[in-house]
Write a protein that binds this DNA or RNA. Structure first.
Lengths: 125, 125
DNA sequence: TGCATATATGAACAGGCGTTCATATATTAA
DNA sequence: TTAATATATGAACGCCTGTTCATATATGCA
């Protein structure tokens, strides 16, 4: 393995080969380490059938909690818990209109993730 | 929620509102339902710190098992188990040269997934 | 105010999962 | 063949997580 590769990977994962002298780059290293952690977290959250279905549904249209629950035939409670998880990782956002909460995907990146993911799995089926 | 949206979501998730009469589209529905399942599975597999680090490392360079283990400071056994999981979802592939197994990402889609994922998390940090 | 609706949330339980440990397989060299 | 190296794998243990159930909060209507 090349030195360059080791460094690049190390920068991102904050693992082995960290040259303690590179003080100036510590911040970047830290940030990248956080990024890898956040990346895993993001994938993990989308790695649940209920949550990915919710995300897919929201990629089509803004929906309220009870619509999602009815559509997916999942209890209101389960949907609400799932939405909180999605919200915490900034995958969805919502606006409140009276007693109804309307959810949408947080940004276009999520749509992108779903698209790229679909493109991968389509070749498996 | 519009009828159109309900149909689209339903087609993909195979949930509620399925019009049993649409015999001709059953196959597409099934395929999409499988796709959603496979999509969740794919995200789930990348939703583990060790595996996403491995994927990230492999996006930089082809690596053998022991290189990965050393780089990530994870036991050889854990790496091997992780690689098997990644292999089963066709996220990585390998070639064998003597007793050494060299792993790479299976295709460009995976690189894409990592990229898009990074683009999302970078805005969170 | 009282009641129904929409959503959120804490507790708890069951099932799933990643690691470790021990061991098996396979290749290479002596 | 024997020893060493590289990788794979099964079993098992402890942790994590998604759901359910009960309940809380909050809004709207009568």
């Amino acid at each position: 393995m090349s030195q360059k590769t080791a460094k690049a990977i190390n920068d991102a994962c904050e693992i082995q080969f960290v040259d303690e002298k590179r003080v100036k780059s510590v911040r970047r290293v830290m940030k990248s380490a956080e990024a890898i952690t956040a990346l895993a977290e993001t994938f993990k959250i989308l790695g649940d059938p209920t949550r990915v279905k919710i995300a897919f549904a929201l990629s089509k249209e803004e929906l309220c909690v009870c619509d999602i629950a009815n559509l997916l035939k999942v209890s209101q409670s389960a949907v609400s818990h799932s939405l909180r998880t999605l919200r915490q990782m900034k995958l969805v956002k919502f606006r409140k209109e009276g007693k109804i909460a309307y959810y949408t995907l947080d940004d276009e990146h999520i749509n992108n993730l779903l698209d790229v993911g679909f493109r991968h799995v389509e070749e498996l089926l």
